[in-house]
Each structure stands twice: as structure tokens, then as C-alpha cells.
């Protein structure tokens, strides 16, 4: 029964063996409990929804009324702005810090390390409160030679409003985390890549920009997407600055007006969820972009050809006198 796959079904039995049987159908393993479990879950959810719809404490009419309230949608825009601007600054600063940590220069390396130590080692809420008090600590921003009269002096409160203080607080904190993510990405790139680029005469900066960073991106993007979503939610802490035009502070303000915090919490949550969903779609496309040339993604056709389909080398220079002697060398190992 070992080698009858090439024979037609039901024809000559193998010599001296048992008669050939038709090919067996494969029955997949069934999972009836999965279905049962899903139905039970659906029932529980349905019960919860029906119950929630009837509870007055949720105040659904208020949810509907404020979901597209102008103040709320404006607040969502502020939240998104805070997230995007802070993340952009944090990513740029994070790349710089990560590269600094990889530097051969011990001074540069230590600066990056101290930065990380401070900004990762203290809570972001504490940092935001500190930034909020910056105008009290440093009443003016002076440009000039220390201990002489400054050339330019701007009162801190005019130079920085609460929005930008919030951005500074969020981005400087986030940069410390981004630096570690970027560093992990840089370390994930095969050192041979750096060598190949160097051997081609590329400078260190070009090597980083053209060869190492694009490959590191594949490792950097998924945790960065995570950080963006995390940042979106951290913006709710900027009331510590205090900056109060973002989503959470705004919904709190409105709930004080209507003496019911619950519907506005639902409104804010729905908006956070909506923005997160949009960001996740963006992440999917970024990941696809940087997966170019690497491995196989099950959701994408690869276009791979089997090696055998590739024609043998055919160089149009003079015919090889004796390819056999070279093959011999290869075999000799």
C-alpha cells in the first residue's frame, strides 16, 4: 500500500497486496461547543443591552443630544490635535534619542540616558502639573548672554499658552518611550546591512536614513501605533496643566451643567473609540507599506517564483572552457 497513488482508482491491485480502496474523504474536526458558547455570550450581551436601554441613569436622550454637540466635536478636534502634534514631536525626538544612545560618543550617549531616566522615571501627570507651573518658575524667556541684560525677553505666559504647554508636556514624556521603541527597531536590523552600506561608501547618516531606519520601521510601527492610541487617552490628563478644551474636560464641564456625569462619559467614550478606530486603519496601511520585500504576509499575494522556474545563468561572454573542473572544486568540500 505504499506506492499506489499513481495508479488509477480501482484498477489492478498491487501484486500480492490487498485490493486498492478509493481515496478517503477527510472529515474536519467539528467544534460544537464554540457555537454553544457564542450563543450564550450573545444572550448575555442582549440582556445587558435591553436592560441598559431601560435604565434611566444612562439618560440615553442626553447621550443623543450631546453626541454631536458643537462643544464636544470641537473638543474631539483638540484631542486629536494634541495627540498628533505631540506624537510627531515625540517620534522625531525619540529617533534622535535612540540614535544618540547608539552613538560611539560617550557624552552624547550619557545625555540620552539621563533624559530617559528623568522623563521615564516620573509620572506624566506630575510632569504636566510641573509644565503648568512653568510660568511661575520662569516668568520670562530670555535670550542673551547669561548674567547680562537679555537681548530679547518674552513673558512665558505670552510665549506659551496652555495648549502648547500641554503639547510640550506630553511630547517630552512620550519621546522617552519612543526612544526605546526606536532603539529596539535599530537593534533588530542585521549588522550586515550596516556593513554593506558602509562598504558601498555610504556615510553614517545615509546608511541610517536609507538602509537601517526603513528596515527598523517594520519593528517600530506596531508598538508606535500602540503609543498613539495610548497618547490619545493620555490627553485626558492635560487638565493638570490646565488645558480644558479637550474631550474629557469638555464633557466634564457639560455634565456639571446638566447634573449628570454618566451620559457625557458615554459620549466621550464613543468619541475616543471612533478616533482610535480611525488610527488603527492608518496603522494597518503603514504596516503594509513597510512590509515591502519582507517575508510572507498571509493577507497579501507574494509573487514568489519557485527557484526551479528561473533560467540558468547564461553569460554571453566566451563559453566556459571546462565548467566540470569548477563543479569539481565545489564538490570537493
Amino acid at each position: 500500500m505504499t506506492d499506489n497513488s499513481s495508479q488509477a482508482v480501482g484498477t489492478t491491485p498491487p501484486p500480492g497486496g490487498s485490493p486498492v480502496r478509493p481515496p478517503a474523504k477527510v472529515v474536519k474536526l467539528r467544534h460544537p461547543w464554540r457555537t454553544v458558547f457564542a450563543i450564550v455570550l450573545l444572550l448575555i450581551v442582549a440582556l445587558f443591552v435591553i436592560d441598559a436601554a431601560q435604565r434611566t441613569a444612562y439618560d440615553w436622550p442626553a447621550v443623543g443630544k450631546y453626541l454631536f454637540d458643537r462643544r464636544i466635536s470641537e473638543a474631539a478636534v483638540f484631542t486629536l490635535l494634541l495627540t498628533v502634534i505631540s506624537m510627531v514631536i515625540a517620534i522625531i525626538l525619540g529617533v534622535v534619542l535612540a540614535v544618540m544612545r547608539q552613538s560611539e560618543n560617550p557624552v552624547v550617549k550619557s545625555v540620552a540616558w539621563v533624559y530617559l531616566w528623568i522623563f521615564r522615571g516620573t509620572p506624566v501627570y506630575v510632569q504636566l502639573v510641573f509644565w503648568g507651573l512653568i510660568a511661575i518658575i520662569y516668568q520670562s524667556i530670555d535670550l542673551g548672554i547669561p548674567f547680562t541684560d537679555p537681548w530679547v525677553s518674552i513673558p512665558t505666559t505670552t510665549a506659551l499658552n496652555a495648549f502648547w504647554i500641554a503639547v510640550i508636556g506630553l511630547s517630552l514624556n512620550e519621546a522617552a518611550y519612543m526612544a526605546e521603541i526606536v532603539r529596539a527597531g535599530l537593534l533588530s536590523v542585521d549588522p550586515g546591512q550596516n556593513e554593506a552600506a558602509t562598504a558601498l561608501g555610504m556615510s553614517w547618516g545615509k546608511t541610517m536614513r536609507r538602509v537601517v531606519l526603513p528596515q527598523a520601521m517594520r519593528v517600530i510601527i506596531p508598538p508606535t501605533g500602540n503609543e498613539v492610541i495610548s497618547m490619545l487617552k493620555t490627553t485626558s490628563l492635560v487638565s493638570a496643566v490646565p488645558f480644558t478644551l479637550e474631550l474629557y474636560s469638555r464633557s466634564r464641564d457639560i455634565s456639571v451643567e446638566i447634573f449628570n456625569p454618566i451620559p457625557l462619559l458615554i459620549v466621550a467614550s464613543l468619541w475616543y473609540l471612533a478616533v482610535t478606530s480611525v488610527l488603527m486603519v492608518g496603522q494597518y496601511f503603514l504596516e503594509k507599506r513597510y512590509a515591502r520585500g519582507v517575508g510572507v504576509r498571509p493577507d497579501r499575494p507574494t509573487g514568489t517564483v519557485p527557484t526551479a522556474a528561473v533560467p540558468a545563468v547564461d553569460l554571453d561572454l566566451e563559453a566556459e572552457a571546462d565548467p566540470g573542473s569548477m563543479r569539481h572544486g565545489g564538490d570537493a568540500r
Binding site: 554593506a196 552600506a197 562598504a199 519582507v294
Partner: peptide, 16 residues
């Protein structure tokens, strides 16, 4: 190094 070409054991092509 521009004038010196090098080929590596593990190819080291840029995969992206």
C-alpha cells in the same frame, strides 16, 4: 570605499 567593491558571505542585500 567608493572605489572598493565588496561582496559578503551572506549577500547583505537591502531587503526593502
Amino acid at each position: 570605499r567608493r572605489d572598493i567593491g565588496m561582496v559578503f558571505q551572506r549577500f547583505n542585500l537591502f531587503p526593502h
